[in-house]
Design a protein around this nucleic acid. Structure first.
Lengths: 233, 233
DNA sequence: AAATTTGTGTGTTTTTTAACATGAAATTAA
DNA sequence: TTAATTTCATGTTAAAAAACACACAAATTT
C-alpha cells in the first residue's frame, strides 16, 4: 500500500474500531494531530521503559507486543492486527511502557497525540465506555493466560498458541493454513518454552498428523485433536 | 465490628476510594441501592462462571481472588484489602466471573447495584477516568505477573510473593511480621508451585535467616536479601 | 475425650523441561 | 557466486520441579 493513498478517517469510521463512537468534530481533532509511519519487518515501534506520547492505530501489518524476562527469554503478551490500537495501557495508567512493540511484517501505523486522546476519553462517555470494555476484556485474557502458561504442559501450551493464532489471524483461502508466519522462537515466546521445545513439539504434532509444517507455514490438519490437546493441558 | 455501626457513606468519601469523585447525589444513588453482607473465613463470595449482578466494596477483612486451573491447582490472581472494589472486571467486560472470591478472614462487604454503577460510569467522566486508570494499572500487574510466574525459579517466585504481601498488607507493629496469615497452600497458589515446594522453600529461607516462621506468622528478618533472591529470579 | 479431618514437614522417585551440542538448511550480505 | 549468519532440527545431559509417600501436629467435629 502506498502511504499517500491512505485515508485515515476511513479507518476511524470502521465498525470494529473503538473510535467509531466519536463525532465528526472529535474525529477531526485526532486527524489534525496524527503522524503516519511505516515500519519494516523486525523494526521496533516502541520499547520497554520509554514514555508513551501517542496512541497508535495499526492500519496494515502485524505487530507483536512482548516483555523481556529473565536472561534472554521474552514473553509475547499480545499479537495485533489491523485495526487494533497499541500502546494504550501504559498511556492510560500514566506509566512508561512495560512492553515493547515489534513489527512482524511491513506495517503502517497512525500515531495520535496522547493528550487529545485522553481529552476525548474525558469528554465522550461512549468512548470512555469503549475503552473500559477493551481494558476489562484484555485483563480477562491476561488472567486466563497466567493460568494457562503456568499450569499447562508443553503440548497443551503450544496447542493453545496455535488455536489462539487461528482465532486472531484466521486461515488462508485453503481454510487450514494459519494466516501468519512466525519464527519458531516467536512461537516459543508465545507459549512459554524454549525454541528447541517449540521445534520439537511442532515436529511431534506433525508426526501425529495434527498439523503439517512447511517452513513457517502451518496447516491445521486435525482441529478437533488440537483442541483436545489444548483441553487436556 | 457490628454491622449496625457501619456508615457506608464514610467509606465512599475516603480519599483512597475510586468513588470519592462522585457528587453527593450520585453517592446517594449507590447508598439507596446497597446490600451489606458479612462472610466468615473460607466463605465463597462469588464463584467462577456466575453472572455478576453487583459491584462489591470490601469494608473489612481480606479476600483472595483465585482461578481454578488444571487438576486441583488454583492460581491466586489478586489479594484484596479494605477499601478495594471486587468483581468489577467481569461486570465491566459483560462476562461471567472468570475467577472466584473467597474470604480469608471474617469480612464485611457492600454490594451496589451493577446497573447504577454502570450508569455512574457513563454519566460521570471523572469516575470513568478512575475506573480506566484502575483497569490499566491492574492489566500492567497481570502482565508483569505472567513473566514473573513463568520465568522465575521457585525461590524467586516465593520471594516475590512475600514482598508482594508486604506491599499489600504491610507489617504488624513490630515492623517485620507480615500482617496477613495464609496457609502454605495459599502461598503456593500465589507463587505457582506445589504446597510441598512452598513449605520446603519457606524452610530454606528460614534456615538462611531471611525469614522466620511461627505457624502462619512470617517475619522478614533480612529484607535486602529477600529482594536479592527476588531479583535473581 | 476420642475420632476425624486438615495442615505441615521431609525424604525419595519420576517427570518434565531447560541447557547444551552439533549439523543441516535457509537467508542474507559481501 | 561465495561466505556469513540465522534459523531449524535432533540427540544428549543436567537441572528443576512435580508427584508420591508417610509421619506427625493441630484444629474440628462428634
Amino acid at each position: 500500500m502506498n502511504l499517500n493513498d491512505i485515508n485515515c478517517s476511513e479507518y476511524l469510521n470502521d465498525e470494529n474500531n473503538i473510535f467509531n463512537v466519536l463525532s465528526t468534530n472529535e474525529k477531526s481533532t485526532l486527524l489534525n494531530n496524527h503522524i503516519l509511519s511505516s515500519y519494516k519487518r523486525n523494526n521496533i515501534i516502541f520499547k520497554e521503559g520509554e514514555i508513551p506520547n501517542s496512541i497508535l492505530l495499526l492500519i496494515e501489518g502485524k505487530v507483536k507486543i512482548l516483555k523481556k524476562g529473565i536472561g534472554s527469554r521474552s514473553q509475547i503478551l499480545r499479537m495485533t492486527k489491523p485495526i487494533d490500537i497499541i500502546g494504550y495501557r501504559a498511556l492510560l495508567a500514566d506509566e512508561p511502557y512495560i512492553s515493547s512493540a515489534v513489527a512482524l511484517e511491513d506495517t503502517i501505523i497512525f500515531a495520535f497525540d496522547k493528550n487529545k486522546f485522553k481529552e476525548l476519553i474525558h469528554s465522550n462517555n461512549d468512548f470512555a465506555t469503549n475503552i473500559i470494555k477493551l481494558l476489562a476484556s484484555e485483563l480477562g485474557f491476561s488472567n486466563k493466560k497466567i493460568v494457562a502458561l503456568t499450569q499447562k504442559h508443553i503440548r497443551g501450551r503450544l496447542a493453545e498458541t496455535l488455536l489462539f493464532l487461528k482465532n486472531t489471524y484466521g486461515f488462508d483461502e485453503d481454510n487450514c493454513t494459519l494466516n501468519i508466519c512466525l519464527s519458531r522462537e516467536d512461537l516459543a515466546n508465545l507459549s512459554n518454552m524454549t525454541t528447541s521445545n517449540a521445534i520439537r513439539t511442532l515436529s511431534t504434532f506433525a508426526s501425529e498428523d495434527v498439523i503439517s509444517v512447511k517452513g513457517r507455514k502451518i496447516k491445521i490438519k486435525n482441529y478437533k485433536k488440537l483442541q483436545k490437546i489444548n483441553d487436556l493441558g
